[in-house]
Design a protein around this nucleic acid. Structure first.
Lengths: 343, 343
DNA sequence: GCGACTGGATGAAACGTTTTAGGCGCTATA
DNA sequence: TATAGCGCCTAAAACGTTTCATCCAGTCGC
């Protein structure tokens, strides 16, 4: 059964093609009797509007895209749900793309989205450098909102959480607990989140961590598996160099570290304290409930979507805005054991 | 900057419009010199193909959709990643829609997807009854593959895991451990997964659980929060009626139950054993590592995508297939403590 | 009874592709 | 020298909408 077009509906209802379109789009411009005849014809034929044709004519689609670093990371899925709420209220559609922290895939997605003439793009970009493909989108007039990333760019809106502050909160807490050998586990550092959380931690240490040291254990991605590998590396250190606390760039890594340490017989927090980042739902349910830096995940998504819709609406008169949320440290058992400094 | 069209590229390169199209789609049909001129023009103008027009002409899009019950559930995101791998190899795009276990949202998504003339739909449907909107898609000639659901329908392919068997595995294990008062926590029962896992458990009990009873604690959704609420209810029972083991319809619920029990001072597995379902990554990292019925999550997605592509390719000659995977019980600490029956 | 409106419908143009039938200038064949 | 064949290109049609200018038949005010 080939899809019926507006033309056949028109023929069946005995009206012109334009009238059918009016029934669809401005129903009160057409006389009730006629309208009913058209609606009947639509029902009988099982007519479904062809969105490609509509878009072609309109020059724009009604979909908005969100490109995330990792669909399997609960932080992003919560963000997606926030964005979804807002987007769907407007009758538009949100399509979710996964870059998997891979720059080539990100580019490929953006190309496809551009071909689709999406109405706007929410994105947590992979790299932190210049972003030629994003610029291209913007040049084309497609609004882009940076999520969880890059406040301060003039050419686009952004929504972010103060990751430097988050890093500070975590580090201050660990220093308060008496830790002096601390590791930061995370990567790649090309992700600004990773770099800034580290920067915050380093700054806190610099300011008040007399005699404390921060070792970096870089990972290739922000996953549980990466966390486990990093923990292995830490365990390979001689015991007296081994950190007594670990601050992880996100909760997945923290969970990985926790798993590996536990399997290898170390106790958390007695032997090693752990602080994660994001406060995903699973952090509280972990083997040892995980301390974490909480971000307003859904709100991040909601706000981003609102900014985007606003920009798409306003067009040229739009003023780019940068919303920054404050993170908040949630202390749980994984770091809740003061340590008497003994060095 | 309005988007440049093929026409302007043609003018700039001094060729006809059809030639530009040929450069794009069958590059070797056009003389190298001309081709280069066209490519230059494309680069200079920053031309990007308009997918709506292309689709309109082709009558079909190059996107495939996957509609899941809950994007925030790691089970589904893993499935999505599997499907993604396969779909992207073909140069198509996978768009992810979230029904949130809400039938109205599911319907709305399917309508939009139909308007978009997607090439096919992978779906884990919300309800288990007749599915008029799915039928409508199929009538229209849009291939639909049921995922994690409904083997045996004649009009579509399906990929699933034997949930009845999964329920049996869990229940047999709990009976082996000596449990006699067992609860099944999950819902809504309109989800076939929920109903079948229960059916499997009930059947196992029927066959060999002399004197054992299975109490059902129904939830409204498959989330951590639902699990916590269900656990509260169980805790409200008089101690001697309280189950000594809980089989949960999925891991999120199991994690919720685990959390609530722990907070209320019960020990797992000593006081209550727990078995979950799905074996998501976080199950192993839980406060008490969670026993769970493992499903091949990514493979489910991959296989579904392959079936869909195959069907889209084959057209009318296609034979619907039903692939069923076997689940596997993974025993971890949450249920690993035999109990001497004392009733 | 006449012009000016008005509500309701029509017809055609336009959006940007892809595709198909054909045209043009060559070279190879007879 | 005519003819067929070939390589490369062009022109035009078609896909299904939406919109805009127009038209028609009543109705109202005078």
């Amino acid at each position: 059964m080939a899809a019926a077009s507006i033309k056949e509906v028109a023929r069946r209802a005995g009206v012109s093609l334009g009238t059918v379109s009016n029934v669809l789009n401005r129903p009160d411009m057409v006389a009730p009797a006629t309208r009913q005849r058209v609606l009947d014809a639509i029902a009988e034929l099982g007519y479904v509007r062809n969105d490609s044709a509509r878009q072609l004519r309109a020059g724009q689609s009604r979909t908005i895209a969100i490109v995330v670093l990792d669909v399997a990371n609960p932080f992003f899925t919560d963000m997606v749900r926030g964005a979804e709420q807002v987007v769907e209220e407007t009758g538009a559609m949100l399509i979710v793309c996964n870059s998997g922290e891979d720059s080539a895939r990100e580019r490929r997605h953006l190309e496809l989205l551009e071909e689709q003439r999406v109405r706007g793009v929410l994105i947590t970009p992979v790299g932190d450098g210049p972003q030629p493909h994003l610029e291209k989108l913007i040049d084309r007039g497609i609004p882009v909102v940076l999520v969880d990333r890059g406040a301060g760019r003039a050419s686009r809106c952004s929504v972010a959480v103060d990751d430097v502050l988050g890093g500070r909160l975590a580090m201050d807490h660990l220093l308060d607990q008496g830790h002096r050998r601390i590791a930061y586990v995370g990567g790649p550092f090309s992700l600004a989140q990773v770099a800034e959380r580290h920067a915050g931690a380093a700054a806190a240490l610099e300011e008040r961590g007399a005699g404390a040291e921060l070792r970096v254990a870089a990972t290739t991605s922000l996953t549980v598996a990466s966390g486990r590998r990093a923990a292995e590396d830490l365990l390979a250190l001689p015991a007296r160099q081994r950190p007594t606390a670990v601050f992880c760039a996100n909760d997945l890594i923290a969970l990985g570290v926790l798993q590996e340490l536990t399997v290898r017989g170390l106790r958390v927090p007695a032997d090693v304290a752990i602080v994660g980042y994001d406060d995903i739902e699973f952090a509280a349910a972990a083997a040892v409930p995980l301390s974490s830096v909480r971000q307003p995940r859904e709100q991040l998504g909601r706000t981003a979507a609102q900014l985007l819709l606003e920009e798409a609406e306003a067009g040229a008169t739009h003023q780019h805005r940068h919303v920054v949320f404050q993170p908040e440290l949630v202390v749980r058992r994984s770091s809740d054991q003061p340590r008497r400094p003994r060095r």
